[in-house]
């Protein structure tokens, strides 16, 4: 019975939002605005709460087990400190919250991201080999792109830049288009299957 009610709610809201999206009627448009401005935000806030509770529960149980205890404590302290700073001093201008964001979070995230350059360099030496014809094609495309995206005008022949632009504008774009169209059609069919109740895995098992 519970599954049936969930399915009916899913169908009703799926069909309603689908109709509202395409309708130009003033009532439909104002209802659409209300759904987007109010209801989506409420749903988002609740999902955020679910995420935070889950994060705290998982970390607490792992701390109890002694699994990566220092890191998990730091995570929980971070989770608690940022809202406290935001509630007391706000999140704007030169608030402590913004200081923590700019001088702790931003450098840490940028550092982790920058480490990728080192791993790419290492992987290019150890793993990027022309073992087969397709691998050789991939390798050539990578070399062309890397060279053309450097500021080496006057050093690198013009035809390399032109070849890299051709790779980006033809085979790369064709593949990307195919993927995008595939994703679009897949999303459309999955959405229809969910709305019409054909796809029911999101409801969980019968147990």
């Amino acid at each position: 019975m519970g599954r049936r009610i969930a399915q009916i709610i899913c169908f009703a809201f799926g069909a309603l939002l689908f109709a509202l999206y395409f309708s130009q009627h003033p009532t439909a448009r104002s209802l659409n605005t209300a759904v987007m401005i109010d209801y989506w935000q409420i749903i988002f806030a609740i999902t955020l709460l679910v995420g935070v509770i889950s994060f705290v529960r998982i970390n607490l149980s792992n701390i109890r087990r002694g699994d990566n205890r220092p890191y998990r404590i730091i995570s929980l302290v971070g989770l608690a400190v940022m809202p406290i700073l935001a509630i007391i001093w706000g999140i704007k201008g030169n608030s402590p919250f913004m200081w923590m964001f700019e001088y702790v979070q931003v450098p840490m995230q940028s550092t982790v991201f920058a480490l990728l350059a080192f791993f790419v360099a290492s992987a290019s030496f150890r793993g990027f080999r022309a073992r087969s014809a397709p691998a050789a094609v991939l390798l050539t495309a990578a070399l062309l792109t890397l060279t053309s995206r450097s500021s080496l005008e006057g050093i690198v022949p013009q035809f390399i830049t032109e070849a890299a632009d051709w790779v980006r504008g033809n085979p790369s774009m064709a593949a990307r288009r195919a993927i995008l169209i595939g994703i679009g059609l897949g999303s459309l069919t999955t959405s229809l299957r969910v709305i019409l109740g054909i796809e029911r895995t999101w409801l969980g098992s019968d147990k």
Binding site: A121, S124, L152
Partner: peptide, 22 residues
Amino acid sequence: MLAQSVAHIYVVLLIIVGNIIY
């Protein structure tokens, strides 16, 4: 861009050297 360019050249050289060794 200067840093990125030399890093790109470095990676290109690493790929070439890696393949020669291979």
